[in-house]
Each structure stands twice: as C-alpha cells, then as structure tokens.
Design a protein around this nucleic acid. Structure first.
Lengths: 193, 193
DNA sequence: ATATATACGGAACATTGTTCCGTTTTTCAA
DNA sequence: TTGAAAAACGGAACAATGTTCCGTATATAT
C-alpha cells in the first residue's frame, strides 16, 4: 500500500502551499480590515488570483469559517495550561477573559453567524467540540471547589460571554471585562458563603 | 410672522406623506427580511421610486437609523407606565425584559453600529437621550429600595443587556432571558440581605 | 392660469461576490 | 528525460445591490 492517498494521485504541492498562504493572508486582512474585506483584497495580499480562492473555498463564508476554526483551536489549547498554573476559580476567570478578548476581535462575525448561511452551520458544532469541553473542565473544577452555584449551565454562560464581548467597542475593552465580571458574580450569588 | 417656515415656501404635502409611507414600509421590510433587505424592496413596498428614498435618506443607513429612533421612542415611553404599575425592582426587571425583546429584533444592527458609518454616530446619543434616562429612573427607584448593590453603573448594564440579546438566536429567546436574569442576580450579589 | 421651486422615477454607474474557461503547472509513467 | 493527463491557476465576465443623476411630473404661490 502507498504511503498516503487511496484515490488518484498525490495532492499538488502548489495547491497545499497556496492554501496555507491563503489562510494566513485572510487572517491578516480580517484583522486589519474586518471580516467584510473584499475577496479581491485577500487575493492581492496572498499574491494569488481570485479563482484560486474560490477553488479552495467555494464561498467567501467558507474562508471566514476556516480562519475562525484555527483561532478557536488556539483558544481551546490555552485552557489546560491555565488550569495547570492556577487554582480552579482563578483559572476559570482567566480563561474567560482570554476567550472574551478573542471574541472581541470577531465583532463583524456576529451578524454572519445568525444569517443562516450554510457555511457557518458547522461552526457552532466546532465551537462545541473544541471550546465547550475546554470550558467545561475549568467549570467543573471551580464547581467542585464550591465557589459557584450549581444551577448554571456552563454552555449558556459561554454563549453569554461571547454575546457580551462581540458587541463591545474597540476603545473600551474594560466595559466588556466588567460585564463579564458581573456575570461571574452572578454565578457566585447564592453559592456557599 | 407666518405660522412656521422661515425660509422659502411650505414643505410639499406629497413629500411629507411619502416620508411617512417610507418609514412604515421600511419598518415592515426590516421586520420581515432583516436590516439587510435591498433598498429596492423597500421602494417597491412603499410604492415609490428608489430616487425618492435617497432624497429623504441620502444613505441607506440613514433610513435604518430613522426607523431605529422611532422604536427607541416607543420603548422609552413604556418605562413610566411600568413604574406606575409595579414595585420598583419588578418594574426594573419587566422593563429590561421588554427592552431585551426589542433589541432581540435588531440583530442585524449590531454590526452596522460598530462599522463606523457616520449615519449611526448620532444613534448612541439618541439612545442616551431617550433610553438611558428611562432606565436610570427605574434603576434609581430599585436602588433606593436597597435591593441592588451600589457599585453598578446603570448605563453599562443597559449596554450589556443589549449585547446579550442582540446575538441570541431566534428560536431560543429563553436563553437571552435567563442570561439577563443572571445579570440581575449579579446586581443583587452583595446587596442588603 | 402660469411660473417656479420641489419632488419623483428609474436608468445608469460603481462595488463586490461568484462563475467559467482558456492557460499554466505539477504529477506520473514510459 | 520526456510527454500526456490531471489538477490548479488567473482573471475576464456576470449578477446583485448601493448610489448618483437628470429629465419629467407635481405642488405651491402669485
């Protein structure tokens, strides 16, 4: 048996390279000009043609989704590290802040997510697969330590924090942070003294 | 002195009528198809030409802003009525729920608000002028009754609730409601027993 | 009734997402 | 090494939508 690809020939080297180039360029352009940046701008930055983008990502939304998945991975990977370096409740709070900071950079995405575009349908699933378990673990530890009440659904909380930060303004990141703190305090309301 | 218009002749009757027709049509179309509905769709519904829309509202965003202002007025006007019919803290909660319900219908607006479009720059000011005082009054009463803690900024809370509901999904209005409740509980955390 | 200012309608233009296909590059096997 | 086939590339062309422009129609004032 060959060392790889059951059907047909090996994937072309240039195609793989361009895929990487594309994702990198898109990430940069989205960070600079927001997720509404024209596809042509991304193509130019990547030094590729428009057609190339559309072969890798049939719809503009697919490209956005791909970049988003990459970033979710990075955020999820931070959880075990924080859990290792901090007591349970503190780790929970710190991760929520890091998560909040990331979401804050994704402002333009909110609308897209709720637009019903099929390209984004898989994103919540990925969110659940990566981010939810990461948070659940932190939450369980904090819960076991008795510092938060028992009638809260961690999944809902995660969504709430996202909502909060998604629509915060660039200039006052503080506000979002304070509101997240308020939610955290809400979690403590009625917990063991 | 004439009964009205310092410069030039009286505003044309058809123009005024069309302005009303336009706002009504826009409100309906936005409710049906979201704020991203094509301008042409609104024109058709109003039975007017595209040009007419653009004379009244130089930019599509101006029309959105105008509709938004109308709805803010309606929401603000509900505050004194609720305050009259309920005890302080209850009135506060009920108004927040009505406010939350309205914001939930404005999902597509979130992005627009943060896009830096000049047409929306006046909207926060209007928000403050109408909605903030309405809420402040309710908040002050509840605060005076000692049921909420003293270190919370009502303006921030108002924004937080908006953020929460703006990105809730159509199908689970409940989720948003629960999260609003969590914020409210956060307000109570540490208040007088 | 007429003249004039105002408003109207919709064709034409600009921008941006998406499709299509002729050309170029890579891979595979002889 | 070389040539044919498969895969990928680039960008012109198309479609949808916001916006501008101006000839035409209408309301107002005299």
């Amino acid at each position: 048996m060959e060392s790889g690809h059951p059907a047909g020939r090996r994937p072309r080297a240039d195609a793989q390279r361009n895929l990487g180039t594309l994702l990198q360029a898109a990430k940069e352009v989205f960070a600079t000009s927001g997720v509404d940046a024209p596809v042509r701008e991304i193509a130019e930055r990547a030094g590729l043609g428009i057609g190339t983008i559309y072969r890798h990502f049939p719809q503009r939304a697919d490209l956005i989704a791909a970049v988003c998945r990459q970033e979710m991975d990075a955020c999820a990977d931070a959880a075990p590290i924080l859990a290792n370096d901090n007591p349970p409740f503190e780790a929970l709070v710190k991760w929520l802040q890091r998560y909040a900071a990331w979401v804050a950079t994704k402002r333009g995405l909110a609308k897209a997510l709720h637009s019903g575009d099929p390209a984004f349908e898989a994103l919540p699933a990925y969110f659940e697969q990566r981010l939810r378990p990461a948070f659940r673990t932190l939450f369980a530890s904090a819960s076991a330590s008795g510092e938060i009440r028992g009638d809260i659904d961690p999944d809902e909380l995660l969504g709430a924090v996202a909502s909060l930060c998604m629509s915060a303004r660039n200039d006052d990141t503080d506000h979002a942070q304070r509101m997240v703190t308020l939610l955290v305090d809400g979690m403590r309301y009625g917990a063991k003294g």
